[in-house]
């Protein structure tokens, strides 16, 4: 990318540091009651206790962070995995076969705008309380971005590659497996990145529903007890884990799509 040379290493931290400094100043100024908008230092203090159990100020959550993180992470992983499998399979079918598209796609497009929150009552009826409805809601969030990007990737597959495949004697199944799917992978990965973001965003919604642990659960419980410092710490935790998950997907992407190294802007990163 052009123009990176003149940015020093520390430049990526300027904006976050400025925001944090401004926030700390504002909180200490007393314009709002301290408990309503805790200063970053208070949030960090609460977060430290939540993770390490430093001084017990988060009471029942002291030292519980790893467990909460693991609970949320396992739910996100499960929902995301199911969403990926289903969305890629359906996406390839819809992108490849006009008949499938005509039959299935309108229904999916009608389901897509329904916000996951509104699925909560049905989710509880179908799956009960505890992990399953939460996984279902995460699934809903991740499913549609992956589906749409897969369809796009399949439909945009270079027709000439298909011709080359037909020429070497491939039947439809072989064309799908050896040409269409690999050609669609860049788009599928784009969908996966969006999907994992949605999945983490829905953690808060999903964990409203009678789970016993997790970052979203802590967020709601803390809100109930007016512990806004913990609410902010929970939000930051979710953001952090979302970022790390995205890094993970990008690492896989770099490996699988290594052949793009010389041909795309992204490959040159």
């Amino acid at each position: 990318m052009p123009g990176l040379q003149h940015l020093r290493r520390l430049d990526r931290y300027v904006v976050p540091v400025l925001i944090l400094a401004g926030w700390e100043a504002f909180s200490r100024s007393g314009a709002l009651p301290a408990a309503l908008l805790p200063a970053p230092s208070t949030v960090v203090w609460a977060w430290a206790d939540w993770v390490f159990g430093t001084d017990g100020n988060t009471q029942t959550y002291s030292g519980h962070w790893v467990y909460d993180m693991a609970s949320s992470f396992s739910r996100v992983l499960a929902g995301f995995a199911i969403a990926t499998a289903l969305a890629v399979a359906l996406g390839v079918a819809i992108g490849w076969s006009r008949a499938t598209e005509v039959v299935i796609e309108p229904t999916l497009q009608m389901l897509r705008p329904i916000p996951p929150v509104s699925w909560i009552p049905l989710a509880i009826i179908w799956f009960g309380i505890a992990n399953k409805p939460a996984i279902f809601l995460v699934f809903l969030g991740a499913f549609f971005p992956i589906l749409l990007n897969t369809i796009h990737g399949v439909k945009n597959c270079d027709r000439n590659l298909i011709r080359a495949g037909a020429m070497v004697g491939g039947n439809n199944r072989e064309l799908l497996r050896f040409i269409v799917l690999p050609a669609a992978l860049p788009n599928i990965f784009a969908g996966l990145r969006i999907g994992i973001g949605s999945a983490w965003m829905l953690t808060v919604t999903a964990e409203m529903v009678a789970v016993k642990s997790g970052l979203g659960y802590v967020l709601w419980d803390s809100y109930y007890f007016l512990r806004y410092d913990l609410v902010l710490a929970a939000m930051a935790s979710i953001g952090l884990l979302g970022y790390l998950s995205d890094l993970g997907i990008r690492a896989v992407m770099a490996r699988v799509l290594h052949w793009q190294r010389n041909t795309t802007i992204q490959g040159g990163e």
Binding site: R163, A164, M167, V168, G169, P182, A183, L257, T263
Partner: peptide, 20 residues
């Protein structure tokens, strides 16, 4: 009636699979 491996084709653009 259809393409097949009894007739090899060399295209104007090579049409190779870029990921292989």
């Amino acid at each position: 009636a259809a393409p097949g491996s009894d007739r090899g084709v060399v295209f104007q653009q090579a049409n190779l699979m870029p990921w292989l």
